[in-house]
């Protein structure tokens, strides 16, 4: 198998990896905010439902959650055919939304009370205080921890192979077992390094941009 053929096959896997990555991010970023609001709700039962949910998701392996989403409905007698990739993406979005929600919550809670009070005595509404005063400061504070999670997500996408979604690692594994080649494994590593390297540069840039003020 030539270098070009391997590249073509790995690229196909990489496309799936990218798909999982992109859709998870697009779904989990807003869903996480919703979970944050839920877990900070003043209504106690709502708050606790969200907190327990986040605890369960964060306390169990993502691999288990993928398996559950894919096989679960069938096991309780639901006769539906779930697309493998869809099952992976659903599990990923829920899982990452929970992690993101905790980061958002930490960010929101780290904003000093004085910022809200300053807005209040200046006659701002609650939503004006959130959107015009607090939100930007939260974003600045959460970019570094969010960056860590996003880099982790790049690598976590390889968990999709547990239900035979052919992402990057799986496509390399197939080559290795069929053609007895070892080097595609290192080649795959290069794919990941390039991707996460690019993201790191992007995140560092964002962090730098936001660092025009301290605090």
């Amino acid at each position: 198998m030539s270098f070009l053929e391997v590249t073509a096959q790995l690229s196909k896997g990489f496309l799936t990896t990218l798909q999982i990555f992109g859709i998870t991010l697009a779904g989990a970023l807003p869903l996480g905010l919703l979970i944050t609001f839920g877990s900070m709700s003043k209504i106690k039962p709502i708050k606790w439902i969200f907190k327990v949910f986040v605890w369960i998701i964060r306390g169990t392996p993502l691999m288990l959650q993928i398996i559950l989403v894919f096989y679960g409905p069938g096991l309780i007698g639901w006769d539906i055919k779930i697309d493998r990739l869809l099952a992976v993406i659903v599990a990923f979005i829920i899982n990452y939304a929970c992690y993101f929600s905790e980061i958002y919550r930490g960010g929101i809670e780290s904003i000093p009370k004085g910022q809200y009070e300053a807005g209040q005595v200046l006659g701002m509404t609650k939503s004006q205080i959130f959107f015009k005063v607090v939100l930007f400061q939260v974003v600045k504070r959460i970019v570094p921890p969010m960056g860590n999670e996003i880099i982790t997500l790049v690598k976590d996408t390889s968990l999709a192979r547990v239900i035979s979604v052919i992402e990057l690692v799986k496509s390399a594994q197939d080559i290795i077992s069929q053609k007895s080649l070892i080097w595609p494994l290192f080649y795959v590593g290069a794919f990941y390094l390039l991707f996460s390297g690019l993201l790191t540069i992007l995140l560092n840039y964002a962090e730098k941009k936001l660092n025009y003020y301290q605090g």
Partner: peptide, 28 residues
């Protein structure tokens, strides 16, 4: 009817001095 100046200033760190002063009047 009342204004309050805090012990710890509580300026909005992400905005310039001018913006800090203009923000609330504009929003209102």
């Amino acid at each position: 009817h009342f204004g309050l100046v805090f012990q710890s200033f509580n300026l909005f760190p992400q905005y310039t001095v001018l913006r800090n002063v203009c923000l609330a009047p504009e929003l209102m």
